[in-house]
């Protein structure tokens, strides 16, 4: 069974902006799934439709076999969502907020689970403070606790670690990994692509409202990722339009001032020589060259055709 099946989902806002265009996506049950995309790609719109804070224009969504758009109450009981924007009720403490949230999901008070959540998210010391007094990182962790307090089967985390320091982030991920190992399906959006590569076993990339890749992390990095010829010059590289044109066949990008050319592999041979000669002709003889395997970030940037190309 799949955790989430999204079919032909469209969203057109009143302004006329089409945020999602025939989005279809399958999230297998029990996976750690990364939903990636540049800012404004439609990730949050998709999550907000799942969370019932935005209406879909058309399409269908199934959660654990139930139609999420028509069986909302059932779906909501099994879904936990961490919204991207920090939000907190200034009248109540984290402990009260967690009890209220659990109650609103129709579940009886569970002091042990609330204490466990507060401890695992390192909020125990601040459990009885008014939320206004919490730091940004603490408020973010409280949002995670709120999404988990009713023990959902599917959890959606919309950039849950923005503003959380490295140490805490690591411990937060350890906790989420534990929940995932116990069977909770996790759908994550993040701009920390290294984290996504390390944590997630499936990945989908969304760009301009359309899904442009959706597969297991292993197959994405195996099939789509390739190697790069990296050329370092005396001065950090800044590509002119004419140089971009000359190197077009190698999808040129500049990473930290180093020219990176995409290498194609066919029957055990690569086009290394052609790429090296093209670089020499366009920018001169490099000081240094090396081969680097693409990671998720390289694939992401290449697929979304962005920035440094």
């Amino acid at each position: 069974m799949t955790a989430l099946t999204i079919k032909d989902l469209n969203k057109v806002y009143e302004s006329g902006k089409q945020a999602l265009q025939n989005v279809s996506l399958t999230v297998p049950k029990g996976v750690f799934f990364a939903l990636l995309g540049p800012n404004g790609a439609g990730k949050s719109t998709l999550i907000n439709i799942l969370a019932d804070t935005v209406r879909a224009s058309s399409g269908s969504v199934s959660l654990l076999g139930h139609d999420l758009l028509t069986e909302r109450a059932w779906g909501k009981r099994h879904l936990g969502v961490v919204p991207q924007e920090i939000a907190f009720d200034p009248f109540f403490s984290p402990r009260e907020i967690l009890h209220f949230t659990r109650g609103m999901y129709g579940q009886k008070r569970d002091e042990a689970w609330v204490n466990d959540l507060l401890e695992r998210l390192e909020l125990s010391e601040h459990a009885n403070k008014i939320t206004r007094q919490l730091s940004g990182g603490m408020k973010r962790r409280l949002l995670v606790a709120q999404a988990l307090v009713h023990r959902p089967k599917v959890v959606i985390l919309d950039e849950p670690t923005a503003g959380v320091d490295v140490e805490l982030r690591k411990r937060l991920w350890d906790f989420i990994r534990e929940l995932n190992a116990q069977g909770t399906t996790v759908l994550l959006t993040t701009h920390y692509l290294e984290e996504a590569q390390e944590l997630c076993d499936h990945v989908a990339i969304i760009n301009q409202g359309q899904v442009i890749a959706s597969q297991s992390m292993q197959s994405l990095l195996g099939d789509v990722a390739s190697s790069n010829l990296c050329c370092r010059y005396e001065q950090p590289v800044k590509l002119l339009e004419s140089q971009k044109q000359a190197l077009q066949a190698f999808a040129p990008r500049v990473c930290d001032g180093v020219l990176c050319l995409n290498l194609q592999h066919q029957e055990g041979q690569s086009n290394f020589d052609a790429a090296y000669q093209a670089a020499r002709q366009a920018l001169g003889v490099p000081l240094d060259t090396y081969i680097r395997q693409e990671n998720l970030e390289d694939v992401f940037l290449r697929l979304t055709h962005k920035d440094t190309r």
Binding site: A51, D52, T53, R72, A73, W74, K76, R77, L79, V81, P83, E85, I86, A87, F88, D89, P90, T101, M104, Y105, G106, Q146
Partner: peptide, 14 residues
């Protein structure tokens, strides 16, 4: 204003 209404909308409350 504080965006907390999303918690109410996400909860299974008709």
């Amino acid at each position: 204003i504080m965006n907390t209404h999303v918690f109410l909308m996400m909860a299974p409350i008709s």
